[in-house]
């Protein structure tokens, strides 16, 4: 078992349990917490999110986590809505985000079915999170809003248009897909995060 101290941020807007189980399958028992001190002391922090942006942001503010997260120095991994909230703003509920990535989250145009739901391929992977992951590997997505390609994009996916499947800037990592639900590929990506 890994002795790493990994904390999953619990702000009542995330599918915390599946991330916790995915880490357990990799031999890591993560803590689930919204306590500032516990999060600060973690070796790594995971910031999941499922649901609606404005509501999730409200929950973060209620607990002061909106102030804490940008100050963190250890590797932080935002997942799905977690990634979108790390951006400047989201068109969903006209929500101001944490501003860690200088880009806006936009709504998919209604040119195809929305949400973008299911397994899609990632390409142009960069950075350590994708060590050993082949070009065009399939990962699982469920989302109605997307982060456009930008200078911090570390992998991209195409649905309606090409957008950021993942981002990285300094110690902040993020993926739009759900590594915890993306089969063996997802487990490997999570393992790469653990190994950072």
């Amino acid at each position: 078992m890994s002795k790493q101290n990994i904390v999953i941020i619990d702000y009542k807007a995330g599918n915390v349990q599946s991330v916790k189980y995915a880490l357990e399958r990799l031999g890591v028992y993560a803590k689930v917490s919204n306590c500032e001190e516990t999060i600060r002391q973690a070796d790594k922090v995971i910031f999941p999110g499922v649901g609606e942006a404005a509501w999730a942001m409200k929950k973060l503010k209620e607990t002061g986590l909106d102030q804490l997260i940008p100050q963190l120095k250890q590797p932080v991994l935002g997942i799905c809505l977690g990634m979108q909230l790390m951006c400047t703003s989201s068109e969903e509920g006209d929500t101001k985000g944490l501003g860690l990535f200088p880009v806006k989250t936009l709504k998919f145009p209604a040119e195809d079915k929305v949400p973008h739901m299911g397994w899609n391929q990632i390409r142009q992977q960069k950075a350590e999170l994708f060590n050993g992951i082949k070009e065009n590997s399939f990962v699982y997505f469920v989302h109605s809003y997307y982060v456009p390609l930008n200078e911090h994009t570390t992998s991209e996916t195409h649905y309606i248009r090409s957008f950021s499947a993942s981002l990285q800037k300094a110690n902040f990592y993020a993926c739009q897909f759900h590594p915890e639900k993306s089969g063996d590929i997802g487990q490997e990506i999570l393992n790469n995060f653990i190994k950072l």
Partner: peptide, 8 residues
């Protein structure tokens, strides 16, 4: 099931 399954 959630503990062992890595797909949705």
């Amino acid at each position: 099931v959630a503990q062992v399954l890595n797909i949705p």
